[in-house]
Simulated scan of single mutants.
Amino acid sequence: MAELTPLAISVLALLEEKPMHAYEMYQLLITRKNDRIVKVRPGSLYHTVERLAGQEYVRATGTERAGNRPERTTYEITPAGSDALIRRVERGLENYAYEYPTFPVLLSEAHNLKADDAVLRLRSRVDDLDTLLADVDATLGKATEVDVPEVYLIGGLFMRHQLAAERDWLATTIERIESKDLAWQPREKQ
């Protein structure tokens, strides 16, 4: 079987809570702000549910129509789906895997910019990170206020620490570029 994608993991985890239809899954992911940790679009979510059904990790339990809304099929997780979810979480927690984010590639090529341009753009990213951190802090604060157990927040806490570490590293790098501690030599055009 193919490795479960991040979206498939999220779908199976939602169905561990209770049976639901794909639109409800989408709404929960957005409401819980899980779209910050997994790329979710309605079309990709429906495709993922269909793929999981083909793998017999989920099964349809019924179809209903409310008013003039389209029919909605409710799904539940199967025992095989529960096992697949657990196995994927176990492997993912214990084994490091390169995820190939774009930002390190862009940093590796930042020398193609003039130092003042690079600093300007990095400062803009630091501002974006500060905004994201404030939003994550607000979300985590709201969850804490309504007594969401911390164990359900560890993904968000991890994300917050990653954002803060990136912001702090970038702020230090900006200082090093400006103080000339980090020699900036744009590549010569040939």
Rank of each mutant, 00 (worst) to 15 (best):
Q27L: 12
E76V: 12
D128W: 11
Y100T: 06
G141R: 09
G141S: 12
Q55N: 10
L28F: 06
M20K: 01
T73P: 03
E94G: 01
R69N: 11
Y57L: 15
V40P: 00
M25I: 12
V119L: 09
E56L: 00
L107Y: 01
N95H: 14
E64I: 13
N95Q: 11
Y75E: 04
D116I: 06
E50M: 03
G62C: 07
R125N: 10
D130H: 10
Q55E: 09
D135R: 14
K114I: 00
A134S: 12
Y26I: 01
V49E: 01
D83L: 13
T131R: 14
L93I: 14
M20H: 04
T74S: 12
M20Q: 11
L106T: 07
T74Y: 10
D135Y: 07
T131D: 11
Y46T: 07
A60G: 15
P42R: 14
V49K: 02
E90S: 07
A53Q: 08
R72H: 13
R125T: 04
D137I: 02
V126H: 12
S82T: 15
L85H: 06
K114A: 12
A134M: 01
T74H: 09
A80H: 08
R69P: 02
S44N: 15
T74C: 04
T61N: 06
G92S: 10
E71Y: 00
G81A: 07
H111G: 05
P42A: 09
R91W: 06
Y96M: 00
D35Y: 10
R125P: 02
L29S: 04
D35C: 00
Y98P: 05
A66N: 08
I86E: 09
V136T: 11
T78A: 05
L107R: 08
L93C: 05
T74F: 11
G81T: 07
R72S: 13
Y57F: 14
T78P: 04
R121S: 05
D35L: 02
H111Q: 09
A138Q: 13
P79L: 12
I77A: 06
E99T: 15
Y98G: 00
R87T: 02
G92H: 02
H21K: 01
V119T: 13
N95C: 02
D128F: 05
V136D: 05
H111S: 13
Q27I: 08
A118W: 03
G54W: 03
Y23V: 10
E56H: 07
G141P: 03
I37W: 02
R59F: 06
A138I: 02
D137F: 03
H111M: 05
N112R: 11
L52Q: 01
I86T: 15
T61A: 09
L106I: 14
E109P: 02
G54P: 00
D127A: 13
A66G: 03
R123H: 10
V58T: 14
G62E: 10
R91Q: 14
G141E: 14
E50Q: 12
V119G: 04
